[in-house]
Design a protein around this nucleic acid. Structure first.
Length: 257
DNA sequence: AATCATGTCAACCGCAGTGCG
DNA sequence: CCGCACTGCGGTTGACATGAT
């Protein structure tokens, strides 16, 4: 399987690799090691571009690559990692044993994404598919002191369709705002699928009484800070400045990835 | 048996990041 | 500082395989 071969304007061969080309590439790399991809094809006697050689090596010829069917454990790992990392396939591949980013990406797009959708899970946010928002945003003048009468809009810091990054940020913020800074706690938060969900009411505002997960806290992203309302007492909240959230998020991300 | 839809997977393309002169 | 070359990444494409009708 693959693409037919053809030659581009520069005389470079494109499309499917032959066994002979594979052999040449492997032999050259085994003898000389990985070096300059640009000059490698010529030195290896290949009529290919350096990019093509690199891709072929990394995704197919490199030793130790696992191929074929994904195990249920691998699929579960991909789903969990995707919930945290989003479409960062290279980062996901680094966490998986000997799977290439291309392989993982293909499997996600062809199989896992559809499976999640079928099961009522949004494959991008990893949340149940309901008409709502994951990241809550607000404008300062519209935000009252009580979360129950808070009027929220979707046009301040984040789009109304939360990206994987926004979800990640929300989870990070939950951990940071909770003032429990140890990394194990943060990692648990990142790997926990349950995050605050807020339903939109008829007026386009948000109701806080429709969230998933009893122990989850309710986050408000305001202009200069993140407010974390306690589940135990809806009148009580803690604030964390954006700068602090961003700084600590960076540190956590550095540690994790 | 023929046709169509869907799945699989290798490979390409374009863009962003990085390093170097 | 700037421009160029190179590398790495993510999105997309294309061809074959397989299953359903």
């Amino acid at each position: 399987m693959g693409r037919k071969t053809w030659f581009d304007d520069d005389g470079m061969k494109k499309g499917e690799w032959t066994a002979e080309e594979d052999q040449k590439l492997v032999a050259y790399i085994n003898e000389h090691g990985l070096c300059d991809w640009r000059s490698l094809p010529e030195r290896a006697g290949l009529q290919r571009g350096g990019k093509s050689c690199r891709l072929r090596w990394l995704n197919y010829l490199r030793p130790g690559i696992r191929r074929g069917k994904f195990t249920p454990q691998e699929e579960e790992a991909i789903i969990k990692l995707h919930a945290v990392l989003g479409n960062r396939w290279a980062a996901i591949a680094k966490k998986m044993e000997n799977r290439t980013d291309n392989d993982i990406k293909n499997h996600w797009n062809s199989c896992l994404k559809k499976r999640l959708s079928k099961n009522g899970i949004d494959p991008m946010t990893h949340e149940p598919i309901i008409n709502n928002l994951t990241v809550t945003t607000t404008n300062e003048e519209e935000c009252g002191s009580s979360p129950t009468n808070t009027s929220l809009t979707t046009e301040s810091h984040f789009s109304s369709s939360p990206s994987g990054s926004a979800c990640l940020l929300n989870k990070l913020a939950a951990g940071i705002a909770s003032r429990q800074h140890d990394l194990d706690r943060i990692k648990n938060i990142l790997l926990d699928r349950k995050i605050t969900i807020n339903d939109q009411d008829e007026e386009g505002g948000l109701r806080r009484d429709q969230k998933i997960g009893e122990e989850d806290d309710f986050l408000i992203w305001d202009d200069g800070e993140v407010r974390r309302y306690m589940d135990t007492d809806p009148m009580e909240y803690e604030t964390t400045p954006y700068d602090s959230v961003l700084y600590e998020s960076t540190q956590i991300l550095d540690y994790l990835f």
